[in-house]
């Protein structure tokens, strides 16, 4: 554990709390892609299967359980509690274009042909693109509530902080995980456009609006 990874994880936690807070206070999940949230549940469940057979640390255990539970809770909020505020007609990204290629990549690139290893790889690849339905929705509507942009910024910060974490680990442990690093770089790259608008507009007090 190093400071980059720690703050990355804290940022990830924060993003989830921001999202739940947004849904509760506005009593609405407007602007949130249900598809992205479903993909996150798939990511956490397939990656954290090792909860059942390996122990890393209490920190690791608590975080994994939290990520699975909170992502399922968000689905509940969107599909049950605040269902009328969820508009599937603007959440149109085709997730099969993400899940299929990720499954193929996981079969090719993994650290061993065991079900758990392939699913772990799959979760890494899927996480790297899981935000796309959300970003696509943002692109379509052209604007977002400020709180939704804070959610995305915290999520993007988490991925960004994992990069110095890997650099740190390379120098301190001489260790590189090529699958995680490659997927992580792609994932962080997807946020670049968003970050640009977030820093130049939202943090200057303006509304998040994309140029027409």
């Amino acid at each position: 554990m190093n400071i980059f990874r720690f703050f990355g994880d804290i940022s990830h936690l924060a993003s989830i709390f921001i999202l739940i807070h947004k849904i509760h206070t506005s009593r609405s999940c407007r602007g949130i892609s249900f598809k992205t949230q479903v993909l996150y549940v798939a990511v956490f469940v397939t990656r954290y299967l090792d909860l059942l057979y390996s122990w890393v640390s209490l920190y690791n255990f608590v975080m994994k359980v939290f990520f699975i539970a909170s992502s399922c809770y968000i689905l509940y909020l969107m599909k049950v509690r605040f269902r009328p505020t969820n508009d599937p007609s603007i959440d149109t990204f085709r997730v099969e274009y993400l899940v299929g290629p990720c499954a193929v990549l996981a079969l090719i690139f993994n650290y061993g042909y065991a079900v758990t290893e392939v699913l772990w790889s799959f979760s890494i690849f899927l996480e790297s693109v899981a935000i796309l339905p959300q970003l696509f929705m943002l692109q379509r509507t052209g604007e977002a509530e400020t709180i939704t942009t804070h959610y995305l910024a915290a999520l993007g910060a988490y991925r960004t902080l994992y990069i110095p974490n890997w650099i740190y680990r390379y120098f301190s442990e001489g260790y590189v995980d090529p699958i995680a690093v490659t997927a992580g770089l792609v994932q962080t790259g997807l946020y670049l456009d968003f970050f640009y608008v977030y820093f130049t507009k939202v943090l200057q007090g303006q509304k998040f609006e994309l140029p027409a």
């Binding site: 994880d9 990830h12 390996s54 690791n60 990520f67 061993g112 890494i124 995980d177 699958i179 995680a180």
Partner: peptide, 10 residues
């Protein structure tokens, strides 16, 4: 050494 990824990461 087992060929594993950063499984201690989240």
């Amino acid at each position: 050494d087992t060929p594993e990824g950063n499984k201690d990461e989240l």
